[in-house]
Write a protein that binds this DNA or RNA. Sequence first.
DNA 1: AAGGTCTCCTGAGGGC
DNA 2: TGCCCTCAGGAGACCT
Length: 282
Amino acid sequence: MPELPEVEVVRRGLDDHLVGRTLGGVEVLNLRAVRRHVAGPADFTALLLGRTVTAARRRGKYLWFALDDGDAVIAHLGMSGQFRVGSTVDSPHLRVRFSFHDDGPEVHFVDQRTFGGLAYSHGGAELPPEIAHIAQDPLEETFDLGAAIARLRAKNTGLKRALLDQTVVSGIGNIYADEALWRAKLHYARATATMTKSQAATVITEASIVMREALLAGGTSFDALYVSVNGESGYFDRSLNAYGQAGKPCPRCGTPIVREAFMNRSSSRCPACQPRPRNAHA
DNA sequence: AAGGTCTCCTGAGGGC
DNA sequence: TGCCCTCAGGAGACCT
């Protein structure tokens, strides 16, 4: 479940169902699920047996579980990854199953498209070095808005491209980029280098607000691929103003939302509220 | 440095 | 019913 609110829903579920438990079994059913772990699945499993999970953490779209020896397991859900608590042994997409010394339910990593995956991080309990290049996300308590504004304005690119760049601000994907742009009344091709600090602050703040609202709604779920550890869907899809709304009237001005190809994916905007700027980039 | 293109996969849905 | 095409919330590699 790709973007920040959906990943945070998963992290909270893992906080409830994984933290404090000691691993008794790790079974890798699909090699691609641990392809980032270069030492291989047997090494991955051996490193984990007997370890106790001490925390479930997140930055942007990355999750990691801190272990009692200071190491961690990094997880990225990719396009279709899920963590589920028990009851998914019949899924053809079950990739890694974790069992524990206690009598509680197994925790399963399920991933249809296998773009997601797990890896062991030596010394990564606080912040895995493998993801140190990812910028802070807007929901972190120490998020530095001023620094994020500076990184955005230092880019010589189009605004949506910069919002999707996880080294500028992390956690934003295609849905929340489109929603933040709609809220800020800005076009995806707005040149970042010519934006004022105020405009940059506005769009980043709108991204932060829309992701917080989505989190309160349990995330955005269009189908069963995007669910919590208990299999529950979020309902923020009802509150989307631009993403996936092509042909429907803009909730602000009534002009039909348009959908355009951009960056090899789709982009939705209101052509009246978010007109293409004369100084558009790319 | 930036951006275009391609790749990794599976499955759903539309058109014919 | 089946087949082919397009699309999907990510991200990293490669090339220019």
